[in-house]
Write a protein that binds this DNA or RNA. Structure first.
Lengths: 400, 400
DNA sequence: AATTGTTTGTCTAGTGGATGAACAAAGTTT
DNA sequence: AAACTTTGTTCATCCACTAGACAAACAATT
C-alpha cells in the first residue's frame, strides 16, 4: 500500500513549469501573454516560470515581435542547443550512433559494421562510437544529457537485457557499465519500443496517441504507444508479436512454437530461409540480402517482386490482428523492410481492407516510416531528452 | 494544443482527499495517525480532510481502537452504504441487473429472460428491471449514484452503441435515453471491458495492474487492464480479439474474414454450429445448450468432454498470442464458458506451457473467473461508484 | 501632434492548502 | 505516581497560484 504519491505545491510547480516549457517548445516563437492564454495559467505565473527557465538557459528571449495593436511582445524560443543526447541503435551486425540536440535534430552520426563479434568486442566498439559522438558535441550549458541504447532483445523493467537471441546475449548489465564509464544517465530499451517512440516524437506518428509500430527486420518486433505513452507490459517485454501464431499447423519456429508470424513476414522469409518461401528459386538462392533483392525488384525481376508481395500479404494478416486488438489510430511499418514500401503497400492494404472489421478501419492510417533506419536511434535519444527536460527543470542547477 | 490542464492547489486537495478516502476504504478500520504515516501526508492535513469526509458522510467514526502504548486511536470506517449503484449485464437473451453498495456488495438482484425482442421491448424490460432495483435500495445520503450498462457490442468514446450484432442493434443512443428517464449518470460499456473492470475491482484480478480478461460466450471479447487502467483504444473499440486470425485458410466467419478465433474457441464451436466442430455428433445434435453439454460432461460423456478439451486447446492458441503481445500479469477467463473450467484447464495450460516464450511465462497467472456471470454487472456498477467516489468528493454537496 | 484604446509584462496583496511544531488528551509502563 | 507514548487538534508559517493594478510600448483616430 504505497506507490501512491502525495500531492503538494512542488508537484504543481513542476507540472506547470513543464507545461510552459512544452508550450514554448511546440509553438516558438511565442510571447508570455500567448502562453498564458493558451495554457490557462495566470500572466504573473507564466512570467515567473519563464524567468526561471531563462536563468536555467532552457529558453531564449529574442527581440520584439509583431504588435497586435499594442505593446510589442518579447518572443521566446526553446533553446534546443542547451544540451545534447546520444542515441544508439545496436543491431545484429551494426552500430548506428547519432548525436541530437534537444529537438531531435541529428548533429552528427557514426556507424560501425561488423560480423560475429563477442560481447566484449562489441562493447569496445560501442565505447568508441559513443566517445566520438560525445567529442563532436558543441559547447553547451548542460553538455551530454544522456545516452540511450536500443537493442534487439528483451529488456526488463530494470533495463537489464534478459535475452538478445540474435546477438547471443543473456543477462547483460549494459546500463550500469555505461553509466560508470560515461557518468551520464543511460537508458536501455527494446529496439521496437524505441522505434515507436521515435516515430511518435519525430516521425510520421507525430500527434497520434495510439500507435502500433511494426519493426520488420530479421525478426518482427512491435512497439506500442497507448494513450500517448509507451506501453511496456508487466515485466517490460510486451510486443513480442513476432511469435504470434498465424497458422496453427504452420512451420516450426526456433521459439518452439509453430506458425509464427515472423516466419512468414520478415527478412527471414524473404531470404528464403524458411519453408514458407516456397518454390521460389532466386537464381543461386544464396548470398542474397535485402538490398540485393531490392535491386532485383527495382529492375523488374518478377520473382523478387513476388516475394515482396507475398510478405506484404502476410504483414497484412498480422496487422489485421493488431488492428482488431488495439483499434489504433495509426500503424507504422518501420525498420529495414520499410524500404520495400513500393511492393508491400498494395497487397498489405488489400488484405486489410478486405479483412478488417469496418468500424476499426475508421480514422485508421497505415503508413511506412520515413525515418527508416533512424527511428530507433532517434527514439532512444529522445528518452534522455524528455527525461532531462521534464524531470530536471525543477532542480537548482548551476549552469556553466 | 489544449487538453492539458493547469495545476493548482484545488487539484492537489482533490487528489489528497481521494488518497485519504482510498486509504480508509482499503484498510478500514484505520486511525488518522496511520493514514498520515502510510500516505506520507501531514497529520494536520489528514485531520482536516478526514473531517470533511465525515461531514460528507463518506466515512464513519467508531469508538476507540486498541492502544499501541499511548492514547487510543479513533477508528475510521468507509461508509459503504452512503449510496448505491445499479449494474446491468444486457445479454443477447437475458438481462441481469444488480444493486450494489459502494464496496460492490450485491444488495439485490433481478434477472429477466427473453427471446427475440425488439429494441423497444428490450428497453421496456430494462426500465422495469432498473425501476425494481432502485426501489429496493435502502435509504441513504446520496441515493443512487449511477447506472451502468454492459452490452455485447461496439461502444464508441461517446458511449453510443455503434453495433451489437447479436442484438441486432445499430447506433443506439441508450445513454441519453436512460439519463433522461432516471436522472442519474449512466455509463455504457462493452461487456468484456466491464467484465475486466469487475474482475480487477472485485474478482480474482484484485491488485494486478496488467490483466487480460477473456470473455468466452457466444463470441469472444477481450477486456484489457493496462498499467492499472482500462484501455479502450482510439475510438473505444479495442479488444475485438474474437476476430483474430488463427488459421489463415480456416473457415469463413460472418465478419467476412477467415479462420477467426471465435469460430474455434467459443460456444459457437461447442454447439456445433461451425465446420470446426468436426465429426462429433452429440446424439440429436440439436437443442443443445452450454448447460446441457455441461451436464453430459459431468456424467462422463466422452464426446462432450472431447469438445470442451478441443475448445480449451484453441483458447490456448489465442491466449498464447495475447500473452506474447501484452506480457500481462494475469489472464482471466470469464463469462459463461468459465463454468467448464474443469475440462478446459488442462488442455489450455498444456498448450501455453509448451508454446509461450519462457520469459513471458514468468510471474504469469492464468485464472478462471469466480464471479462467473456477474463480472460484467459488477464492473459497470463499479464505474458509477468510482466516478462518484473520486470525482464528486470535492463538490459542496448538501447531504440529506 | 495629441488623444484614446490595446497589448504586454511586472508587481503586490490576497487566497488556499500543505507543513512543522507545540500541545492537550488519553493511554501504557515502570 | 511519574515518565513515556500515541493520537489528534491548533496555529503560525511557507509556498504557489490568482486577481487586479500599473507602467511601458505601441496602433488607430482625431
Amino acid at each position: 500500500m504505497t506507490g501512491k504519491k502525495t500531492w503538494n505545491q512542488h508537484v504543481v510547480k513542476k507540472q506547470n513549469k513543464g507545461l510552459v516549457l512544452e508550450s514554448i517548445k511546440q509553438n516558438s516563437p511565442i510571447s508570455r501573454a500567448d502562453i498564458a492564454s493558451s495554457t490557462g495559467l495566470n500572466k504573473g505565473t507564466v512570467s515567473s516560470l519563464v524567468n526561471e527557465l531563462l536563468e536555467e538557459k532552457m529558453i531564449d528571449e529574442s527581440g520584439p515581435g509583431e504588435s497586435k495593436g499594442g505593446r510589442r511582445p518579447v518572443m521566446l524560443f526553446f533553446n534546443q542547443v542547451a544540451g545534447y543526447s546520444v542515441g544508439i541503435d545496436l543491431g545484429v551486425n551494426y552500430i548506428l550512433g547519432i548525436l541530437t540536440d534537444l529537438r531531435g535534430n541529428i548533429i552528427s552520426e557514426r556507424t560501425s559494421n561488423f560480423i560475429n563479434l563477442t560481447y566484449e568486442e562489441i562493447l569496445k566498439e560501442l565505447f568508441q562510437v559513443i566517445d566520438t559522438l560525445i567529442k563532436s558535441a558543441p559547447e553547451s550549458p548542460y553538455g551530454i544529457v544522456g545516452i540511450g541504447i536500443g537493442v534487439p532483445g528483451i529488456v526488463n523493467r530494470d533495463e537489464k537485457i534478459l535475452l538478445a537471441p540474435n546477438l547471443g546475449w543473456r543477462n547483460a548489465e549494459l546500463k550500469s557499465t555505461l553509466e560508470k564509464k560515461f557518468n551520464v544517465p543511460v537508458t536501455i530499451e527494446n529496439e521496437a519500443n524505441a522505434g515507436a517512440y521515435g516515430e511518435k516524437n519525430f516521425g510520421i506518428g507525430k500527434n497520434n496517441q495510439n500507435i502500433v509500430y511494426v519493426s520488420v527486420g530479421i525478426g518482427i518486433g512491435v512497439g506500442l504507444i497507448l494513450n500517448g505513452q509507451l506501453y511496456r507490459g508487466h515485466n517490460g517485454f510486451s510486443g513480442e508479436f513476432g511469435h504470434m501464431t498465424v497458422e496453427v499447423n504452420g512451420s516450426k519456429c526456433r521459439c518452439g512454437n509453430k506458425g509464427c508470424w515472423e516466419l512468414y513476414a520478415s527478412e527471414q522469409s524473404l531470404l528464403g530461409n524458411t519453408e514458407q518461401s516456397g518454390n521460389l528459386n532466386l537464381q543461386t538462392d544464396k548470398d542474397h540480402t535485402l538490398e540485393t533483392i531490392l535491386d532485383l525488384a527495382q529492375n523488374g525481376d518478377k520473382e523478387a517482386i513476388q516475394r515482396f508481395q507475398n510478405i506484404g500479404q502476410y504483414l497484412g494478416v498480422g496487422i489485421n490482428n493488431i488492428i482488431n486488438i488495439f483499434n489504433p489510430e495509426q500503424v507504422i511499418i518501420g525498420n529495414r523492410m520499410a524500404s520495400a514500401e513500393k511492393w508491400l503497400k498494395e497487397p498489405l492494404n488489400d488484405w486489410i481492407h478486405n479483412q478488417t472489421l469496418w468500424f476499426s478501419q475508421k480514422d485508421l492510417r497505415i503508413d511506412f516510416s520515413h525515418l527508416l533506419t533512424h527511428s530507433t536511434a532517434l527514439g532512444v535519444a529522445a528518452f534522455s531528452t524528455e527525461e532531462f527536460l521534464y524531470n530536471n527543470i525543477h532542480k537548482e542547477v548551476t549552469v556553466s
